[in-house]
């Protein structure tokens, strides 16, 4: 819009200007004579436009070429300029971007490597710990089994068949109708169990189950031969205290 004043000065007579155009030019000219002066100046200036100043371009250029060669020779080869072009902002220079990618890659690799190393170490430690626990457990079980079997063998050897019969008899006593004090019989059973505890320590569950099964079958057999058993059980503890000899029963 502001450029229009030249056009107005070149082509229009002041009186032919509209109110708006006069308003636009009021800073430049407020009357006919000022308008003419400005108009004449524009004419002269447009005639001067084509006039070149005398400039010995080659002389200056030669000096500049030398300077250019000096500056860019010291800056290094094309690759350096390609990687670090001076006109680009630092973060947009290919060399810097490449370096950042490399740092990121190496950093990620190291982090992953470290994480993997920690994982392997933890897993290995856990495995070792597990292995040790399993070994300990196995050892404990083995020793328990050994002890129990040894105790069992010993007990079996010591008491023999008689004891087994007696045990069965004593366990079965409350079930069958025998003329003895039931409390006394229970004590005997308890004592038998305590005896086993004293002698063999902790009894393995399987072992107890097996023994219980054996006792149960004995009980069934005893029930079937009730009459026979009653006959067999006639001599009670009270009547014959010598039956308890060798049973380590305490009252």
């Amino acid at each position: 819009m502001e450029e229009k004043y030249i056009e107005l000065l070149a082509k229009t007579d002041y009186d032919a200007l509209t109110v708006d155009e006069k308003e636009m030019l009021k800073e430049l000219c407020t009357n006919q004579s000022e308008f003419e002066e400005a108009r004449q100046l524009m004419k002269e200036l447009s005639a001067l436009d084509s006039e070149p100043d005398l400039f010995d371009s080659r002389k200056v250029k030669k000096r500049l070429d030398e300077e250019f060669a000096e500056v860019y020779a010291s800056r290094g080869g094309g690759w350096i300029n390609f990687l670090f072009p001076p006109l680009k902002p630092i973060m947009n220079r290919p060399g810097i971007q490449l370096a950042m990618v490399l740092v990121l890659f190496i950093g990620s690799y190291l982090v992953l490597e470290l994480m993997d190393f920690n994982n392997t170490k933890t897993v290995q430690l856990a495995k070792n710990e597990n292995k040790l626990l399993i070994e300990d457990e196995e050892e404990a079980i083995d020793s328990e089994i050994d002890e129990n079997s040894m105790l069992d063998e010993k007990k079996m050897g010591d008491k023999g068949r008689e004891n087994n019969v007696l045990k069965t008899e004593l366990i079965l006593t409350p079930k069958v109708d025998i003329p003895i004090d039931p409390q006394e019989t229970i004590v005997v059973i308890d004592d038998l169990i305590s005896e086993e505890f004293i002698e063999g320590g902790r009894i393995h569950e399987d072992f107890i189950a097996l023994e219980f099964e054996a006792s149960r079958s004995d009980f069934t057999a005893a029930k079937d031969n009730a009459t026979e058993t009653i006959k067999f059980l006639i001599p009670t503890v009270q009547e014959s205290p010598d039956l308890l000899d060798g049973l380590f029963v305490t009252f």
């Binding site: 502001e2 004043y5 800073e27 430049l28 000022e34 003419e36 002066e37 400005a38 004449q40 002269e44």
Partner: peptide
């Protein structure tokens, strides 16, 4: 714009001798 008009006006006034009028 202001400076340009001022400069033009000043020069036009100073160089009015070149105006055929």
């Amino acid at each position: 714009k202001s400076r340009l008009f001022y400069a033009t006006k000043t020069l036009a006034s100073a160089l009015k001798e070149f105006n055929p009028i």
